[in-house]
Design a protein around this nucleic acid. Sequence first.
RNA 1: GCCGGCGUGGCGGAAUUGGCAGACGCGCAGGACUUAAAAUCCUGUGGUGGUGACAUCGUACCGGUUCGAUCCCGGUCGCCGGCACCA
Length: 804
Amino acid sequence: MNTIYNHRAVEEKWRKVWEEKPVNPKDESKPKYYCLDMFPYPSGAGLHVGHWRGYVISDVWSRYQLMHGKYVIHPMGWDAFGLPAENYAIKTGQHPSISTAANIKNIKRQVQQIGALYDWDMEINTTDPKYYKWTQWIFIQMFKHGLAYEKKMPLNWCPHCKAVLANEEAEGGVCERCGTPVTKKNLRQWMLKITSYADRLLEGLDDLDWPERVKKMQKDWIGRSYGAEVNFPLKNDPDKHITVFTTRPDTLYGATFMVLAPEHEMVKELTTPEQKAEVEAYCQAAANKSNVDRVQNKEKTGVWTGSYAIDPLNNAEVPIWVSDYVLADHGTGAIMCVPAHDQRDWDFAKKFGLKIIPVISPDGSDMSDMKEPYVEAKGKMINSGDWNGMDSDKLKSEAPDIIQKMGIGKRTVSYKLRDWVFSRQRYWGEPIPIIHCPHCGAVPVPEDQLPVVLPDVKSYEPTDTGESPLASMTDWVNTTCPVCGRPAKRETNTMPQWAGSSWYFLRYVDVHNDKELVSREKADKYLPVDMYIGGVEHAVLHLLYARFWTKFLHDIGVVDFDEPFKRLFNQGMILGPKGIKMSKSLGNVVSPDDMIRDFGCDALRMYELFIGPPEVDSAWDDRGIEGISRFLNKVYKLVVEESAKDVPETKELVRLRNQMIKTITTRLESFSLNTVVSGFMEYTNTFANIAKKGGVDKKTLEALTVLMAPFAPHLAEEMHEILGYKESVFKEQWPTWDEKLTEEEDVQMPVQINGKTKKVISLPKDVKKDDALAAAKEAIADKLTGNVVKEIFVPGRIINFVMK
RNA sequence: GCCGGCGUGGCGGAAUUGGCAGACGCGCAGGACUUAAAAUCCUGUGGUGGUGACAUCGUACCGGUUCGAUCCCGGUCGCCGGCACCA
């Protein structure tokens, strides 16, 4: 008999059944489980098989939870503000909302093909005014709490995107979107004070069930370092001083010069008339350099201001220099330089002939002939006045307090994290709900007037000046001040693409609420997210911003938790056939639509899992999916033919069934989804062989069907029905196993000589050591020719003879 | 440069706590069915030697610990990712 599985008919049939009778209806009597995908940007190119992977993983996990009696919250939405839609508008003159709606339609169709549990009543679109009303509301709360502020400063500017970038978007000195080297532009911008949450963002990581590498990336990005601020009085004006930040205040006696960033506010007043021309030229050149140039050229440059400061400990005169290796926005923008113990300071001192005084010696020797800086700087203090002879590690921890007591500085903490540049000079984003009044300053739009709807414009083109296209909409821009009623102007910048995604996970559980962003009752019942699945590329962008906003919303009482995502899983990418990233320009994009047509949704789901460990990148292989297709056929054939037979269960089948349930469940729990699939294949092969000899009992076929349900839901429903059930397979509880029944009576024991296996013998599982060794010796008697010096017996594992 | 991670057949990848390396799949080879092909099914498939049972080498490379190492330790090389003048 040739049984053939018709994937098209079966999948269509069950899709209809599920539509009429959802398998995961809202049920408040059950405990909730919130399993979230990172929602996609609805791009015009649609989804490729790589995008599918995370959605398949999350759906398997969701269905697995469902079969443990949970009500699963598994929503989907669209992160739809952003540059591609705007660029398309520039090219075609069509409003971005039109192309966005078309893209959403197509991608929604593709997402629905996954056959996932998504509850489309919860759908979100960040560009919907009903949604971004609350994005704007959050901004206003931040403004009211002093967390949103305006600042004019040199900012990362992408000349290609014609927009400012947050530090997180300008990693490595290039634009995160387009790779163009970032330059600086001095602009007024809206900032969010993420730095005031730095400690909580850092410490909150400890309790999260997240991949260690993501936690580490956030930790490094926040970059907390402990040290001291030290004040160096000016030689010519001892009432004034320069404050530096240092992590090594113990080396203060070795500070032989200081360096200010070119942007430091005191550069001008410190520059002497003789040095003025040179210093100004240097600062001008530094301002024009892109981040990439500044970082790539590590050859030290700099100029002397002509002034001196006084080392507050030993009253030595230290010349004040300007150099671009000091960053304006880290610490205080000024450093004390200890060339004997810092590579950069050493390079600078060597180049400009500055003094070098070693202050730490590993063994107490005088170090005066050092050929390179002693950077590890651990040992005894030398050349350090009162501190001489002290242990440097001990001094390092005590120095901040000593300095504080002396009144020349204080203990302090510094961070790499900067405040979040939150405004963009582009059209397709949430308008910032602020009105600028000449009399009242920046005033928030009253909450009852939200949302501030993004108006239609004629030209979407960004400008080189840093003005938003909205600035030309005079009708919209000109308004009245909500405080004093006099003429005022609207803020024309929009929010960055990360705004809508910083809180969307809260909205899903209460999408239709027009009174609050989420009701406290629903938030308490359904939030936070139990499992969050998505790519690792958001490790320091979206995930950091979302944590920040959640903590803020917690602080103002909107929600009662302050970490949004309890558990995080990062899936690896699916690469093109040769291990190259899939991209339209390379022409190596594999479409899920084609795969579903030829092999079916279940086959694609299982192949996406089988391709490799879910957290690792894997290369697509068109022929691999054929193997899955053969396997699904084999399972179907097994169930159809064996269920017709009415086979009694045997001891062997009971054991195999229990082993199978255990194997699949433990692999699934540890997220080893690729080996779950290979496990199904292996057991199916085993059962197919038993079927040929005698047959497979119904209970075993049922267990196999239920275990497969989260992976191949359509096929599992079909098989469940064939087995005689009227209700959905997802009404079944996840099967359990009896450990005793998994054990075999005999164990296969490898017998080794000097660690090399010579034979495998079968022994009763509770065999005694002496009996086992005797049996083993007999089995390999012909090879035991030498002197056996040691006999090793590990029950159930190994027998090894050490022979000389 | 600093900090992570990884390195296993022709390919994707398996291997509880240190205990039979290569599960499962792809590909390939041979066979069955067929007029033939496709599909399907069966058998084989790390290298070398041997007709064979078997021997021997083998988890990037060098060394160590151990009765026994893909797994632990030290070093080297390569690839990938993060940060990158952070004081």
